[in-house]
């Protein structure tokens, strides 16, 4: 006999087709009525009817049904995949500096608390790149750090990545069908640990989700709107913390000199720096420039100036 989840997934369209409701009805209501009709017509056992009700309620759900704890596990694996592609830079001083700066900035973001917190790591590559995994694991390449001529510029890159975490852009790259399938398994199954086939199916949905996120981050890039949101979040975070948001413009200007058209880095996954500069300048407006004392520049040069 087929496991219950498979049966339910197969039965769902047929049972729901029994019900004709106005288009404005929610999936919840449809599955509720569907379950009742199915049971009344003798198509479903009471146990199956109960499951159809719950499976139906999983259909309308999106990425925001992913709990912070699950976001954390997705982020860990996305992070591991990023690390597998790029070697970490084993420079304790530089990585510590990045974490002090990054964790400071995160406190000024709209989402200072995530399930596992924000953590930062330098990748040993000349490629100009930066990534953030859901939940707050942030990666920045040595090539990108070389485009930063001040602590404020590094802060701008980190604040942009924190912006992607805050707005959950990674999770939004996951195909909806995977979320539906994962939630259906969870809704139908009892709270006990999952059996063989369900565990395999859930792992498949997990692998698919990781693939959706990493391929978006590393290959296709986020939509222009998401990059703009991350830039806006960065400007806000930088201003609150007391860093100069214009450093984002300086960093983009510097980056422009090094980006190679057709490269496998930022050039591929991000809008042209000129477009972003124009947008960011509008966001900053007439805000007063923020002076950077000598001590700030000195510690930046000491920690990451020579990597």
């Amino acid at each position: 006999m087929k496991p219950l989840v498979r049966q339910i997934i197969n039965l769902l369209p047929a049972v729901l087709a029994l019900v004709i409701l106005p288009a404005c009805q929610t999936m919840d209501a449809i599955s509720e009525v569907g379950a009742a009709v199915g049971q009344g017509a003798g198509v479903l056992t009471p146990q199956q009817a109960q499951s159809v009700k719950k499976a139906g309620s999983a259909v309308g759900k999106t990425f925001d049904s992913i709990t912070p704890e699950q976001e954390y596990y997705i982020g860990r694996t996305v992070g591991a995949v990023v690390i597998n592609q790029y070697k970490p830079l084993a420079n304790e001083e530089a990585n510590h500096y990045l974490n002090v700066l990054g964790q400071t900035l995160a406190q000024f973001s709209d989402k200072p608390e995530t399930f596992g917190g924000y953590h930062f790591l330098i990748m040993e590559t000349e490629e100009i790149n930066a990534f953030s995994a859901p939940g707050g694991l942030v990666f920045i390449s040595r090539g990108m750090l070389k485009c930063c001529k001040s602590e404020d510029a590094v802060a701008a890159v980190l604040a942009h990545e924190i912006g992607h975490v805050e707005k959950q852009h990674g999770l939004q790259a996951i195909k909806k069908s995977r979320i539906t399938s994962a939630l259906t398994i969870l809704a139908v199954e009892s709270g006990k640990s999952l059996g063989g086939e369900d565990l395999a199916q859930l792992t498949e949905a997990f692998e698919g989700s990781i693939g959706d996120i990493t391929s978006t981050m590393m290959n296709s890039g986020y939509a222009r709107g998401f990059e703009r949101q991350a830039d806006q979040a960065a400007v806000t975070t930088l201003q609150r913390a007391g860093y100069d948001p214009r450093a984002l413009v300086s960093m983009l200007t510097e980056m422009k000199k090094y980006l190679k058209p057709g490269g496998r880095d930022f050039a591929k996954t991000h809008p042209a720096p000129d477009d972003r500069i124009a947008d960011v300048e509008k966001m900053i407006g007439a805000a007063a420039a923020v002076p950077a004392p000598v001590a700030r520049q000195a510690r930046f040069a000491q920690a990451v100036g020579k990597i």
Binding site: F108, Q239, R240, A241, G242
Partner: peptide, 12 residues
């Protein structure tokens, strides 16, 4: 923040 002369303007 103090050593770098970073003066927060608000937020969290």
């Amino acid at each position: 923040l103090k050593d770098g002369g970073v003066v927060p303007k608000g937020g969290a």
